[in-house]
Nucleic acid binder design. Structure first.
Lengths: 173, 173
DNA sequence: CTTGGATAGTCAACAAGACTGACATAAAAT
DNA sequence: ATTTTATGTCAGTCTTGTTGACTATCCAAG
């Protein structure tokens, strides 16, 4: 079903009325939706004097316990110095544990502590609640389309890595 | 066809397998897609020593020529001090013109200059190209779903304003 | 075994762009 | 005349990005 659209790509522009105005409104939707998407966690993080960077670190460490700093760096696409400041705070505050690597002792493997898991859970529950609401209001087909377009919007090199990251679903519970 | 799913919202959770992992991957898609979405303009803006804030100002002034500072403030959701710094640069650099309001002379109506339009066009063309590509790869139905979910993700109060803003399509060309 | 280069991570200093708070000015509204 | 509104500005802070310099470790070649 999705396959047949690959061929139809050439026709899509007409089918979709891909006028500049249509595309512009898509751009605006992304802008406003992303703001909504981050609004709830942002509010919660204020109380801890943390920002989005902390949230992202907590999220991906939770997703892949034992992640090295370098791997996290690649995912987040920031400089190691920038990440390090955030990570240092989270380690000092006892939300993340940084263990020296067993095979390569230059590496640091990152894990959430008990309280790290608690904060991550609180943040992600707020965000999931908003997303669940949007999904349910929009309906199953819309959700499928939403995911399909978002995947296409990701940078091509990043895309395969993201998709394979998401394959690992359920491996950590 | 889409209508019938409104009723089915209650069943959606099952239909959609709205597990935490499903929702988590949606969250990650938003993160990575938004990065892709802003990547091209970000690169171009660097050459001008501008940032995303400048892009957003140019975008919305282009969208609604004659916009007042206050209206722009509401749209962007930042403080006037923050916006003012950006606006001052853009006015000094001759990209935005700030005219005293004709009915209310306290207000400043904002317009793009020739070169402001040029930069806005370059930025938005890059962004539209990425979105067009994603739309065409995903297909018409996916695009519809994408837009539906994004709308639902916007903060409820903001939503009506955004949607009515997007009704004005094509009024400026 | 030692030297040297590459890799992993840390520390320090700086910049952009958010923020708050205080204040100024002009014009509209009461 | 006084208050409120719209805008602009100054000063200072915070988050989060940047670059540059540094330490620690690994690995490979002599």
């Amino acid at each position: 079903m999705t396959r047949s659209f690959a061929n139809a790509a050439a026709r899509s522009e007409q089918l979709l009325f891909l006028t500049d105005e249509q595309l512009r409104s898509g751009i605006e939707l992304m802008f406003f939706a992303y703001r909504g998407f981050t609004a709830d966690p942002d509010r919660m993080l204020e109380e801890y004097d943390y920002g989005r960077a902390h949230h992202r670190a907590l999220h991906f460490v939770n997703r892949q316990p034992g992640l090295t700093v370098n791997a996290l760096l690649d995912i987040l696409g920031v400089t190691k110095q920038s990440l390090n400041r955030v990570l240092r705070q989270l380690v000092n505050d006892g939300l993340i544990e940084s263990r020296v690597g067993e095979v390569d002792r230059r590496q640091r493997n990152l894990y959430l502590t008990e309280s790290g898991r608690a904060l991550e859970k609180a943040l992600s529950e707020a965000q999931r609640a908003r997303m669940r609401k949007a999904y349910m209001a929009a309906g199953p087909e819309a959700v499928h389309g939403f995911r399909t377009v978002l995947e296409q919007m990701i940078d091509p090199e990043m895309r395969s890595r993201v998709l394979s990251l998401m394959q690992e679903d359920g491996s950590n519970g």
